[in-house]
């Protein structure tokens, strides 16, 4: 025994077990390998390589600046349209999300097949990118705000329902048990014991999704689904970069302002 101990000391005990060290090293090199390959793949179409790209940055600044601020009044309406689209989509999604979130919360929906069904549906919904939804709806309803609102609604519904069902799953179940014990039916139990617990987070998450929708509605305009993105797309098509830069700056400002407001509301809530 003593002999073995001594030899251990002489070998110097490693800080981590050899197996962990080995695993971490392998994972590190695999990740690095995929990274190197990704970089190679994504750069293979580039004419001048990475160095040339950096040089181009200066060209970008020259092309985009100074922004043409004289078009501000002209894009005002489109920006307002984007906000209105986001408001409608967020409101509709917030209403539709309630039954879906309850049905996909494991602690409320004890009937397992129903829970699994709603969960799967929501997971599927969340895999579809907003752009694809917009393209399909534009194909279906023609160019305009309506397909945009529809795409935003469905896109945000997937996110919101998942986040809220997770909130529901983390509530304190004791009050629900008490309401059930005093003879409340399912709706009364939900209204009296669940809703008060979830309401602050619900509002906060709806605001969060509203922010996401503002950003996403920029994307939608690019495929003809209304709003500021439409204007941006036109300017880019005509290579009118100073105008495009103004649009970008307006979007930037609006996103910052809305994020600021919704942060303030959220702080007041919790």
């Amino acid at each position: 025994m003593t002999n073995e101990n001594q030899s251990l000391v002489q070998k110097s005990v490693p800080l981590y077990p050899a197996k962990t060290k080995m695993q971490v090293t392998i994972i590190f090199f695999v990740v690095l390998g995929i990274y190197a390959f990704s970089m190679f793949w994504t750069q293979k179409e580039m004419v001048n390589g990475f160095g040339g790209a950096l040089g181009n940055m200066y060209v970008v600044i020259e092309k985009f600046f100074p922004p043409n601020l004289s078009i501000l009044p002209a894009i005002w309406n489109a920006m307002m349209q984007t906000i209105q689209m986001a408001i409608i989509a967020t409101t509709v999604a917030a209403i539709l999300t309630v039954p879906l979130a309850v049905l996909s919360a494991q602690n409320i929906t004890t009937f397992k097949p129903l829970y699994v069904l709603t969960r799967t549906f929501l997971n599927l919904l969340r895999t579809i990118p907003d752009l694809v939804l917009a393209v399909i709806f534009v194909g279906l309803f023609g160019v305009g705000v309506f397909p945009g609102i529809l795409a935003l609604t469905i896109f945000s519904l997937g996110i919101l329902a998942k986040l809220i069902s997770e909130t529901i799953e983390s509530v304190d179940m004791n009050p629900l048990e008490a309401m059930r014990a005093s003879g409340g039916n399912v709706f009364q139990v939900i209204w009296y014991a669940l809703v008060p617990q979830v309401l602050p987070q619900f509002t906060s998450l709806v605001l969060y999704v509203f922010e996401i929708n503002i950003r996403a509605s920029v994307v939608l305009g690019l495929v003809g689904a209304g709003g500021i993105g439409l204007v941006l797309n036109q300017q880019l098509k005509f290579y009118n970069y100073p105008n495009a830069m103004t649009v970008i700056l307006v979007i930037f400002a609006v996103v910052l302002i809305i994020e600021y407001i919704s942060n303030k509301i959220r702080e007041a809530l919790i």
């Binding site: 059930r180 014990a181 602050p200």
Partner: peptide, 19 residues
């Protein structure tokens, strides 16, 4: 429901809706 209306219950953790 009728039975539970007739039988009241008090819990260890009070089970009130805190908010």
């Amino acid at each position: 429901r009728k039975l539970r209306t007739k039988v009241g219950m008090i819990f260890q953790n009070y089970n009130l809706v805190k908010r």
